[in-house]
Structure formats: C-alpha cells, structure tokens
Nucleic acid binder design. Structure first.
Lengths: 241, 241
DNA sequence: TAGTGGTCTAGACCACATA
DNA sequence: ATGTGGTCTAGACCACTAG
C-alpha cells in the first residue's frame, strides 16, 4: 500500500483502488459497496483513510452515502440525478419530466470531427441517435447524439422507445457505460430548416445550441451531443460558485 | 459551544462562527485568517473540528488554503478567480482578459421587477451600469447591471473607468460587497436595436442572453445582471458533474 | 439489537514555506 | 528552526436504519 511508484497520499491510492473496482463493474449502479470498516481491513488502512477516499468519490457524484444504510454506487436512474445533466427549466413553475420521441437511430461511419472528439479513428463504427424532447406536450429540444459503435452494440430505435427515463440510465444499465461528467459549449444560433420542421419554430428563430462532450471513467469521451433548445418559455439554468 | 439552541454538528457551528466574522469584515479578502490551532483554542474545540469547518468553507470558495502559509480569505482580485464568474471562452485558443467600456452609470429608482429580485422596495435607490466588453478588440458582451443604491453609494462612471480588473474585485475592495455565488438563466434571443448599435451585429442576429442574480453572505441578492453575448467566435463554457 | 455512516478527539508525523 | 496546512491513526460516541 506504500508503493513508491505513485507518489500520492494513501487516501488517494485507496480512492484509486475503489475507482478501479467501480470501473470494472464489481459493484453495479444502485448497489451498496462494502462498509468503511470492511474496506479498511481489506486495504490494511484505518477507517478514517477509507472515509476520506469515499468523501472525495461522493463529492464527485460517483458514490452516494446514506447514513445508517451504507454507501451506494450512484445511478442515473434515481430522482436526485434526473436533472443533473438536463439544465432546461420552465420560466415559471416546477421542473417537469420531458417525453422523448426517437426520430432516428442509425449506425454509420464516424465523420472526422466526431471521431476526433470521441478519440476514435475516422470511419470507425458509430451510432447516431436523433430525438425530440417535449415538455408538457411542447416540442422543445432537438438532440443529435453520437456514440461509439463498439460499446453500444445492440442499441436500436426499438430499444430506445421501450425505455422510459433518462438516456444515461439506459446506457449504464444496458451497456455498462456510466457518464461521469460533461463539458458543454453554449451559443445562440438561428433555426435551420430541420429545426423549423421538427420543432415547429419560425425560420431563423434564435435557438440555444448546446454542444456537449460526455466522459466516463478515466475521462474517456463516450458521447457527443448537439442539442437545439427552444428558450421561449424555458431557460438553461446554471449556478456559479 | 454545545448550545442546544441550534441542533447541528459542532463543526457547522464553528463554520457559522467563522462565516459571521467573514461577513463582519473582521478578516478582509486576501488576508490570512488565524491558524487552525489558534482557532481551535479560541473556540474550545479540537483542531480537527476547525479543520472540517474550514474544509467546507474552502469548498464553497470562501476561503483558500495554502499549505505551509495559512488559510486566506478568497478574493476576486486573484488570477485563479478571474474566470469563475465569466464563462465566455474563445472557440480556439486560450482565454483572454476582456477590455471594459463603461457606457453609462446612473442612479435611479428601482423598477418593480428589479426591486423584487434585489429584495428592495420598488422606488428605492438603485444604480444602473451599462458596459461593453471586448475581447481582443472585438465587441462581444453588452451588460446591464443593477445594484442596490445604499451599499454602492459613491459608485460612478469615473470610478469604474479608473479600475482595471473584474468588477467583483472593485465591489469587494471599495464597497465591502463580496459576491459568493450566482444563478444564471440562459436563452437565445434576437438582437434588438441597442445591441445592433453597440455590438455591431446584424439586426435580429441570435445572441445569448444571460440573466444573472448574484448573492452575497446570507444568500442576500445584491446584483441583477442582464448580458447579451455575441457567440460567433466565443461560447459559454459549462461543466456538468 | 446490530450494523452503518457521522462526529469529535488527541496525538504523531509529513510536506511546504519562510526566516 | 519554526509555523503552517496535510495525512494517518485509534478509539469513543452519536444518529440513523432495519430486522
């Protein structure tokens, strides 16, 4: 445990060991991991050191602590995670769950820019999903989602239609791909012909373009998503601190 | 220290005591606060308890720890804080500091909606600052900033012109108002006549509208800011986790 | 009642900055 | 050499959950 190869505090080495097990799927989303005292014995360190490692992992939303019950692997299929990666909120009233309509799900060769962002070779197999989100019956978001073909083998429109809930919940449950964090670039653009047709907005109406890259364990990019948001009665909410 | 009045862990009570002193201005931005052992003695608790209180305050960016040197009151006039509240970045290349041009600085009665958001009475004195930000000489942001009149007595266009650096640095140094966190609502809008004139964009060009409310200690709102961003060569950057 | 995470303590030692 | 924050330990006790 005191390996000189990695010069970092003990609790970070423990953290790394736990992360490795999470990545390997030893403990699945929603399941409890062993207790702090159990882990401390396994790793041959004190409970406080394990605690500090778990503290950081909980802070990064990889684990969730529940007093009296245990520590659990975070899951996208939980109420508390529903709006973490969807920042669109109504100007008035409470946030509501969107209904999703899958417009398309195709396998094709990754265009060069997508390949670059997903760290694939151009021409590698990729999946393109197009979908529309409606809030209270109002078409609001048009998403173009690019995924690497290999880990998402078996993803079809039927599979997407059959699943209800956040997409990342499906990904973690069916494909073992857990989204950890995202980077987004936002800008204002004019609605193009496709947006006019599928969102029912006026030609050239200003739309919010949200360009996202999502990462899984080890900061590996596994999704590129381009969303067009109608922001007439909803807005993108952000907190700075 | 074990007062039964507030039922919360000891370290949170300590945290609250430290926050009170910060709010009272006992320790100013950029200054060091007493050492952990010193504070532990003052408050009659162990060093570990003070440590946990400071941990949380550092996590909220109110304090900054520097190993070997001490713990310091966070300041907006520091390199590391420069881009925390300005999320606009160039599509290519490194972030650059904007140049600010003050277009207007007027004192007037707060309109009803501004008063509501600043928790003032309609008609109370307020300050309206209009400014333009340019990045590498390119006009990019048009800000309308509303502040409560009382704490910002003495704020003038001349004062603003004389100061170089982030606005929040001026606010904390000259007016003792420290911005802690912001809430932002983003949407896409068409450029109006004023934006066309002052930003040099085409009529109805899509712009990113950023509507911000800023809070100081005790979650008291002290700024309402409406920014129009040109997002042709820059974008609003956000991280989700 | 037993097991879990949450708090608090006391003390030892390490890493870093400064004089 | 001294003072600061950073790490690690061991143990006691509290708060919450569930059988």
């Amino acid at each position: 445990m005191n390996g000189p190869a990695t010069f970092s505090p003990l609790y970070r080495q423990i953290k790394s060991l736990i992360t490795d097990r999470l990545q390997a799927g030893e403990w699945k989303p929603g399941e409890a991991i062993p207790s702090e005292t159990d882990l401390a014995q396994r790793f041959g360190v004190s409970q406080g050191t394990v605690r500090k490692a778990i503290d950081e992992l909980a802070g990064e939303n990889l684990l969730v602590r529940r007093q009296g019950k245990g520590t659990f692997v975070a899951s996208h299929r939980e109420a508390r995670a529903q709006f973490r990666f969807l920042r669109l909120r109504p100007d008035e009233g409470e946030a509501v769950q969107p209904e999703s309509t899958v417009l398309e799900c195709r396998r094709l060769r990754a265009p060069i820019e997508i390949a670059r962002r997903l760290e694939m070779r151009p021409g590698d197999s990729a999946v393109l999903v197009q979908r529309r989100l409606s809030f209270s019956g109002e078409a609001t978001v048009l998403d173009s989602i690019w995924l690497p073909g290999a880990p998402f083998k078996g993803l079809t429109a039927e599979r997407l239609d059959a699943y209800h809930g956040p997409l990342y919940g499906l990904f973690e449950a069916e494909f073992g791909v857990r989204m950890i964090r995202c980077e987004e670039r936002l800008r204002a653009v004019a609605a193009d012909a496709q947006a006019v047709e599928l969102l029912g907005v006026a030609p050239a109406e200003p739309l919010l373009l949200v360009d996202r890259t999502s990462y899984t364990y080890g900061d590996r990019p596994v999704e590129v998503r381009r969303g067009l948001y109608v922001t007439r009665r909803m807005h993108y909410h952000n907190e700075l601190s």
